[in-house]
Amino acid sequence: MKELRDLTRKLLADGDAGVVIGWEEGRRGARPAFITTPDDADKLIFDARCVHNLANYLNPRKPQVKALGKPAVVVKGCDAKAVAGLLREAQLTRDRVILIGVRCGGVVQTPEMPAELTEATVATRCYGCDVREPKLVDHLVGDARPEPPVTAALDRRIAELDALSPRERWQFWTSQLAKCTRCHACRQACPLCHCERCITDKTQPQWIESSSHLRGNFAWHLTRAQHLAGRCVGCGECERACPVGIPLSLINRKLQLVVKDLFDYTVTDDPEVPAPIGAYAVDDKQEFIE
Protein backbone atom coordinates (compact mmCIF):
# COMPACT_ATOMS: atom_id res chain seq x y z
CA MET A 1 0.00 0.00 0.00
CA LYS A 2 2.81 2.36 0.93
CA GLU A 3 4.44 1.68 -2.41
CA LEU A 4 1.25 2.65 -4.23
CA ARG A 5 0.72 5.78 -2.17
CA ASP A 6 4.34 6.91 -2.52
CA LEU A 7 4.21 6.40 -6.25
CA THR A 8 0.95 8.36 -6.42
CA ARG A 9 2.48 11.22 -4.47
CA LYS A 10 5.47 11.27 -6.79
CA LEU A 11 3.44 11.14 -9.99
CA LEU A 12 1.24 14.01 -8.86
CA ALA A 13 4.03 16.07 -7.32
CA ASP A 14 6.23 15.73 -10.42
CA GLY A 15 3.30 16.63 -12.64
CA ASP A 16 3.60 13.38 -14.57
CA ALA A 17 -0.07 12.68 -13.94
CA GLY A 18 -3.03 15.00 -13.40
CA VAL A 19 -5.04 12.37 -11.61
CA VAL A 20 -4.38 8.96 -10.15
CA ILE A 21 -7.39 6.71 -10.42
CA GLY A 22 -7.41 3.96 -7.83
CA TRP A 23 -9.62 2.76 -5.01
CA GLU A 24 -10.60 4.27 -1.68
CA GLU A 25 -12.75 3.32 1.26
CA GLY A 26 -16.38 4.34 0.77
CA ARG A 27 -19.37 3.95 3.06
CA ARG A 28 -20.32 0.79 1.21
CA GLY A 29 -16.94 -0.78 0.70
CA ALA A 30 -14.19 -0.01 -1.77
CA ARG A 31 -14.90 2.41 -4.57
CA PRO A 32 -13.10 4.30 -7.32
CA ALA A 33 -11.03 7.25 -6.15
CA PHE A 34 -9.75 10.20 -8.13
CA ILE A 35 -6.65 11.51 -6.45
CA THR A 36 -5.56 14.90 -7.78
CA THR A 37 -3.32 16.20 -5.00
CA PRO A 38 -0.36 14.43 -3.33
CA ASP A 39 -1.97 15.06 0.06
CA ASP A 40 -4.83 12.73 -0.80
CA ALA A 41 -2.59 9.85 -1.82
CA ASP A 42 -3.08 8.14 1.53
CA LYS A 43 -6.72 7.59 0.69
CA LEU A 44 -5.72 4.89 -1.76
CA ILE A 45 -6.26 1.27 -0.87
CA PHE A 46 -5.94 -2.05 -2.62
CA ASP A 47 -7.38 -5.32 -1.45
CA ALA A 48 -9.72 -8.05 -2.66
CA ARG A 49 -12.68 -5.67 -2.57
CA CYS A 50 -11.24 -3.55 -5.37
CA VAL A 51 -13.37 -5.21 -8.01
CA HIS A 52 -14.05 -2.18 -10.22
CA ASN A 53 -12.54 -2.17 -13.68
CA LEU A 54 -11.02 1.30 -13.70
CA ALA A 55 -10.18 1.06 -17.39
CA ASN A 56 -13.75 2.27 -17.87
CA TYR A 57 -12.57 5.74 -16.90
CA LEU A 58 -10.14 5.78 -19.83
CA ASN A 59 -13.04 5.77 -22.25
CA PRO A 60 -12.38 8.85 -24.41
CA ARG A 61 -16.06 9.83 -24.15
CA LYS A 62 -15.74 10.83 -20.50
CA PRO A 63 -15.00 14.59 -20.56
CA GLN A 64 -15.35 14.85 -16.78
CA VAL A 65 -12.38 12.50 -16.35
CA LYS A 66 -10.38 14.04 -19.19
CA ALA A 67 -10.72 17.42 -17.50
CA LEU A 68 -8.61 16.16 -14.60
CA GLY A 69 -5.50 15.82 -16.77
CA LYS A 70 -3.35 12.88 -17.78
CA PRO A 71 -4.55 9.83 -15.90
CA ALA A 72 -2.51 7.28 -14.05
CA VAL A 73 -4.71 4.27 -13.51
CA VAL A 74 -4.28 1.41 -11.10
CA VAL A 75 -4.93 -1.81 -12.96
CA LYS A 76 -5.30 -5.42 -12.01
CA GLY A 77 -4.41 -7.96 -14.65
CA CYS A 78 -7.97 -8.20 -15.91
CA ASP A 79 -8.27 -4.42 -16.05
CA ALA A 80 -5.08 -4.32 -18.13
CA LYS A 81 -6.84 -6.51 -20.70
CA ALA A 82 -9.50 -3.84 -21.00
CA VAL A 83 -6.84 -1.17 -21.43
CA ALA A 84 -5.31 -3.35 -24.14
CA GLY A 85 -8.74 -3.45 -25.78
CA LEU A 86 -8.91 0.34 -25.84
CA LEU A 87 -5.38 0.55 -27.26
CA ARG A 88 -6.16 -2.12 -29.86
CA GLU A 89 -9.25 -0.21 -30.95
CA ALA A 90 -7.45 3.13 -31.14
CA GLN A 91 -9.43 4.69 -28.32
CA LEU A 92 -6.28 5.46 -26.44
CA THR A 93 -2.61 5.89 -27.17
CA ARG A 94 -0.10 4.37 -24.83
CA ASP A 95 1.64 7.69 -24.09
CA ARG A 96 -1.61 9.27 -22.91
CA VAL A 97 -1.93 7.05 -19.87
CA ILE A 98 0.25 5.84 -17.02
CA LEU A 99 -0.56 2.32 -15.94
CA ILE A 100 0.16 1.28 -12.36
CA GLY A 101 -0.13 -2.47 -12.20
CA VAL A 102 -1.02 -4.21 -8.94
CA ARG A 103 -0.28 -7.85 -8.29
CA CYS A 104 -3.64 -9.40 -7.62
CA GLY A 105 -4.68 -12.53 -5.82
CA GLY A 106 -8.28 -12.44 -6.92
CA VAL A 107 -11.21 -10.25 -5.93
CA VAL A 108 -14.53 -10.85 -4.23
CA GLN A 109 -17.84 -10.48 -6.05
CA THR A 110 -18.86 -7.04 -4.78
CA PRO A 111 -16.91 -4.23 -3.13
CA GLU A 112 -19.18 -4.44 -0.09
CA MET A 113 -18.13 -7.94 0.84
CA PRO A 114 -15.38 -8.60 3.37
CA ALA A 115 -12.01 -8.97 1.64
CA GLU A 116 -11.88 -12.67 2.41
CA LEU A 117 -11.54 -14.93 -0.58
CA THR A 118 -13.38 -18.21 -0.35
CA GLU A 119 -14.96 -20.38 -2.98
CA ALA A 120 -18.26 -18.71 -2.15
CA THR A 121 -17.03 -15.13 -2.30
CA VAL A 122 -14.45 -15.11 -5.10
CA ALA A 123 -15.52 -13.40 -8.31
CA THR A 124 -16.25 -15.81 -11.14
CA ARG A 125 -13.88 -13.91 -13.42
CA CYS A 126 -10.89 -15.01 -11.33
CA TYR A 127 -11.36 -18.55 -12.59
CA GLY A 128 -8.57 -19.31 -15.02
CA CYS A 129 -6.90 -15.91 -14.57
CA ASP A 130 -3.59 -15.77 -16.43
CA VAL A 131 -2.54 -12.25 -15.47
CA ARG A 132 -2.06 -12.14 -11.70
CA GLU A 133 0.85 -9.87 -12.45
CA PRO A 134 -0.15 -7.40 -15.17
CA LYS A 135 2.38 -6.98 -17.95
CA LEU A 136 0.97 -3.95 -19.74
CA VAL A 137 2.18 -1.46 -17.11
CA ASP A 138 4.56 1.40 -16.42
CA HIS A 139 4.90 0.64 -12.72
CA LEU A 140 4.25 -2.55 -10.86
CA VAL A 141 3.46 -2.46 -7.15
CA GLY A 142 2.48 -4.80 -4.36
CA ASP A 143 3.68 -8.21 -3.32
CA ALA A 144 2.72 -11.38 -5.11
CA ARG A 145 -0.45 -12.75 -3.59
CA PRO A 146 -1.53 -16.35 -3.20
CA GLU A 147 -3.77 -17.92 -5.82
CA PRO A 148 -7.44 -17.42 -4.94
CA PRO A 149 -9.80 -20.32 -4.41
CA VAL A 150 -11.13 -21.55 -7.71
CA THR A 151 -14.75 -21.55 -8.70
CA ALA A 152 -15.98 -22.80 -12.03
CA ALA A 153 -19.55 -21.90 -11.08
CA LEU A 154 -20.08 -19.84 -14.21
CA ASP A 155 -18.92 -22.58 -16.55
CA ARG A 156 -21.02 -25.12 -14.67
CA ARG A 157 -24.10 -22.95 -15.08
CA ILE A 158 -23.38 -22.52 -18.79
CA ALA A 159 -23.06 -26.28 -19.17
CA GLU A 160 -26.43 -26.67 -17.44
CA LEU A 161 -28.04 -24.19 -19.82
CA ASP A 162 -26.40 -25.82 -22.83
CA ALA A 163 -27.92 -29.12 -21.78
CA LEU A 164 -31.45 -27.68 -21.93
CA SER A 165 -33.64 -27.64 -25.03
CA PRO A 166 -33.85 -24.37 -27.00
CA ARG A 167 -37.37 -23.92 -25.64
CA GLU A 168 -36.19 -24.24 -22.05
CA ARG A 169 -33.32 -21.84 -22.68
CA TRP A 170 -35.79 -19.45 -24.28
CA GLN A 171 -37.94 -19.62 -21.15
CA PHE A 172 -34.94 -18.98 -18.95
CA TRP A 173 -33.82 -15.95 -20.93
CA THR A 174 -37.29 -14.47 -21.36
CA SER A 175 -37.74 -14.65 -17.59
CA GLN A 176 -34.39 -12.91 -17.12
CA LEU A 177 -34.68 -10.29 -19.85
CA ALA A 178 -38.23 -9.50 -18.77
CA LYS A 179 -36.67 -7.71 -15.81
CA CYS A 180 -34.56 -5.41 -17.96
CA THR A 181 -35.56 -1.75 -17.67
CA ARG A 182 -33.21 -0.71 -20.50
CA CYS A 183 -31.30 1.69 -18.28
CA HIS A 184 -28.19 0.50 -20.18
CA ALA A 185 -26.16 0.37 -16.99
CA CYS A 186 -24.50 -2.71 -18.52
CA ARG A 187 -23.23 -0.59 -21.38
CA GLN A 188 -22.06 2.29 -19.20
CA ALA A 189 -20.21 -0.04 -16.87
CA CYS A 190 -18.42 -1.76 -19.73
CA PRO A 191 -14.89 -0.53 -20.43
CA LEU A 192 -15.15 -1.77 -24.01
CA CYS A 193 -18.51 -0.10 -24.77
CA HIS A 194 -16.94 3.09 -26.04
CA CYS A 195 -18.97 4.01 -29.11
CA GLU A 196 -19.58 7.70 -29.62
CA ARG A 197 -23.24 6.89 -30.18
CA CYS A 198 -24.49 3.47 -29.15
CA ILE A 199 -26.67 1.68 -31.68
CA THR A 200 -29.47 1.48 -29.14
CA ASP A 201 -29.51 5.29 -28.87
CA LYS A 202 -29.85 5.72 -32.61
CA THR A 203 -33.27 6.47 -33.97
CA GLN A 204 -32.74 6.87 -37.70
CA PRO A 205 -33.02 4.03 -38.37
CA GLN A 206 -34.08 2.60 -35.06
CA TRP A 207 -32.58 -0.86 -35.13
CA ILE A 208 -33.20 -1.47 -31.46
CA GLU A 209 -36.44 -0.37 -29.90
CA SER A 210 -35.84 1.61 -26.74
CA SER A 211 -38.95 0.17 -25.10
CA SER A 212 -38.27 -2.33 -22.38
CA HIS A 213 -40.66 -4.93 -23.71
CA LEU A 214 -39.07 -8.27 -24.41
CA ARG A 215 -38.80 -7.54 -28.11
CA GLY A 216 -36.66 -4.48 -27.43
CA ASN A 217 -34.80 -6.27 -24.66
CA PHE A 218 -33.87 -9.25 -26.83
CA ALA A 219 -32.67 -6.98 -29.62
CA TRP A 220 -30.54 -5.06 -27.12
CA HIS A 221 -29.03 -8.01 -25.30
CA LEU A 222 -28.32 -9.96 -28.48
CA THR A 223 -26.61 -6.90 -29.91
CA ARG A 224 -24.68 -6.05 -26.77
CA ALA A 225 -23.37 -9.61 -26.63
CA GLN A 226 -22.57 -9.78 -30.33
CA HIS A 227 -20.76 -6.46 -30.31
CA LEU A 228 -18.62 -7.65 -27.40
CA ALA A 229 -17.83 -11.06 -28.84
CA GLY A 230 -14.09 -11.51 -28.84
CA ARG A 231 -13.68 -8.15 -27.10
CA CYS A 232 -15.22 -8.77 -23.70
CA VAL A 233 -12.53 -9.19 -21.05
CA GLY A 234 -14.96 -10.90 -18.70
CA CYS A 235 -14.60 -8.38 -15.88
CA GLY A 236 -18.28 -8.79 -15.01
CA GLU A 237 -18.86 -5.08 -14.42
CA CYS A 238 -22.03 -5.19 -16.56
CA GLU A 239 -23.59 -7.82 -14.36
CA ARG A 240 -22.56 -6.01 -11.20
CA ALA A 241 -24.06 -2.75 -12.48
CA CYS A 242 -27.36 -4.31 -13.52
CA PRO A 243 -29.99 -3.00 -11.09
CA VAL A 244 -32.31 -5.93 -11.74
CA GLY A 245 -29.79 -8.77 -11.55
CA ILE A 246 -29.69 -10.16 -15.08
CA PRO A 247 -26.89 -12.77 -15.25
CA LEU A 248 -25.04 -11.11 -18.12
CA SER A 249 -21.80 -12.89 -17.31
CA LEU A 250 -23.36 -16.11 -18.53
CA ILE A 251 -23.75 -14.62 -22.00
CA ASN A 252 -20.32 -13.01 -22.03
CA ARG A 253 -18.57 -16.11 -20.80
CA LYS A 254 -20.47 -18.28 -23.27
CA LEU A 255 -19.21 -16.12 -26.12
CA GLN A 256 -15.68 -16.28 -24.75
CA LEU A 257 -15.97 -20.06 -24.98
CA VAL A 258 -17.47 -19.84 -28.48
CA VAL A 259 -14.71 -17.55 -29.69
CA LYS A 260 -12.13 -19.88 -28.19
CA ASP A 261 -13.72 -22.85 -29.92
CA LEU A 262 -14.26 -21.22 -33.32
CA PHE A 263 -11.15 -19.09 -33.66
CA ASP A 264 -8.87 -20.39 -30.93
CA TYR A 265 -8.80 -16.89 -29.46
CA THR A 266 -8.51 -15.92 -25.83
CA VAL A 267 -8.70 -12.28 -24.83
CA THR A 268 -5.24 -10.97 -24.08
CA ASP A 269 -3.49 -7.98 -22.58
CA ASP A 270 -1.31 -7.69 -25.67
CA PRO A 271 -2.74 -4.80 -27.70
CA GLU A 272 -0.87 -5.97 -30.80
CA VAL A 273 -2.94 -9.16 -31.11
CA PRO A 274 -5.97 -8.37 -33.27
CA ALA A 275 -9.46 -9.15 -31.98
CA PRO A 276 -11.11 -12.10 -33.72
CA ILE A 277 -14.09 -10.17 -35.07
CA GLY A 278 -12.68 -7.82 -37.64
CA ALA A 279 -10.00 -10.33 -38.55
CA TYR A 280 -10.47 -13.65 -40.34
CA ALA A 281 -8.67 -16.75 -41.50
CA VAL A 282 -9.27 -18.28 -44.92
CA ASP A 283 -9.78 -21.68 -43.33
CA ASP A 284 -12.19 -20.62 -40.56
CA LYS A 285 -14.70 -23.23 -39.48
CA GLN A 286 -17.81 -23.21 -41.62
CA GLU A 287 -19.72 -26.40 -40.81
CA PHE A 288 -22.80 -24.29 -40.12
CA ILE A 289 -22.88 -22.96 -43.69
CA GLU A 290 -24.76 -24.96 -46.30
Binding site: R31, Y57, V65, C183, H184, A185, C242, P243
Partner: peptide, 11 residues
Protein backbone atom coordinates in the same frame (compact mmCIF):
# COMPACT_ATOMS: atom_id res chain seq x y z
CA UNK B 1 -15.81 11.56 -12.51
CA UNK B 2 -16.77 8.59 -10.37
CA UNK B 3 -20.24 8.35 -11.92
CA UNK B 4 -20.22 6.24 -15.06
CA UNK B 5 -23.69 7.40 -16.06
CA UNK B 6 -25.24 3.96 -15.76
CA UNK B 7 -28.47 5.40 -14.40
CA UNK B 8 -29.14 2.37 -12.25
CA UNK B 9 -29.93 4.89 -9.50
CA UNK B 10 -32.85 6.28 -11.50
CA UNK B 11 -34.18 2.82 -12.32
Amino acid sequence: PRCNGCAACAS
